[in-house]
Simulated assay, not measured.
Amino acid sequence: MTGYMKEMRKFVGHRTIIQCAASIICVDDNGKILLGRRNDNHMLGYSGGSVEIDEYVEDCAKRELFEEMGIIAKELEFFCVNSGPEAHYIYPNGDEVSNFEIVYLCRKWTGNPNSNDGEMDELRFYDPKEIDINQISPPIKKVVADYINKFGK
């Protein structure tokens, strides 16, 4: 954790914080999505993270995609907003968040999947039909399920 959220945790400890986040579901030419195994909860997830002060949401999403997955986004397409009780999460370290996450799809990108910041391992593209929703990190299960329902049939 860096930046704004790290500073806020100094004041509030593990108590619930509203976390404004930006994320990208990276899609290949075959409709497969890039997921990685998170090192904190060992579940699968797409790239994403907290927006820094005065950072454009789109820039945050692109930054997180590069940091966590080594991919450079060329174009973003709005997909959804993930919020509410399903997006509430307690991290393994005890930090609690109520997520307000803006999720984009990225179909035009460059690079090879590679974790630049060590937050994820086992990066690979998954066919939506092969994704076990029970292996998806809890606060993003609804988003992945919505993607599968919309594009995975």
Rank of each mutant, 00 (worst) to 15 (best):
M1C: 05
M1F: 09
M1G: 13
K6N: 14
E7Y: 09
E7M: 10
E7Q: 14
K10H: 13
K10R: 15
F11Q: 12
F11W: 13
V12T: 15
G13Q: 08
R15L: 13
R15T: 15
I17Q: 10
I18S: 11
I18D: 14
C20N: 13
C20L: 14
C20G: 01
A22L: 05
S23V: 01
S23Q: 01
S23Y: 00
I24H: 02
I25L: 10
I25N: 02
I25C: 04
C26T: 15
V27P: 10
D29S: 15
D29W: 06
N30I: 00
G31M: 03
K32D: 12
K32S: 11
K32P: 00
L35P: 03
G36N: 10
G36M: 03
R37Q: 09
R37M: 10
R38E: 07
N39F: 04
H42A: 10
L44D: 01
G45P: 00
Y46K: 01
G48V: 06
G49D: 02
V51S: 02
E52W: 04
Y56C: 09
V57F: 01
E58G: 07
D59L: 12
D59S: 15
C60Q: 02
A61C: 12
K62D: 02
E64L: 14
L65S: 15
F66I: 13
E67K: 14
M69P: 01
G70Y: 10
I72W: 08
A73W: 07
K74L: 13
E77C: 08
E77A: 09
E77Y: 05
F78K: 09
F78I: 11
F78E: 09
V81N: 14
V81F: 12
V81M: 12
N82P: 09
S83I: 01
G84F: 03
G84R: 08
A87F: 06
A87V: 06
A87Y: 05
I90P: 00
N93M: 03
N93W: 04
G94M: 05
D95L: 00
E96C: 09
V97F: 12
V97H: 10
V97E: 13
V103T: 07
V103Q: 06
Y104R: 09
L105E: 03
C106Y: 05
R107I: 02
K108Q: 15
N112Y: 12
P113R: 06
P113M: 03
N114P: 00
N114G: 02
N116K: 15
D117Q: 07
D117R: 04
D117P: 05
G118R: 08
G118P: 08
E119H: 07
E122C: 12
L123H: 08
L123R: 02
R124Y: 11
F125V: 07
F125L: 06
Y126V: 02
Y126P: 03
D127V: 05
K129L: 10
E130F: 05
E130P: 00
E130L: 07
I131D: 00
N134H: 11
N134C: 08
N134A: 03
I136M: 02
S137L: 01
P139W: 01
K141I: 12
K141C: 09
A145M: 04
A145V: 02
A145R: 01
I148T: 06
K150E: 15
K150M: 08
K153S: 14
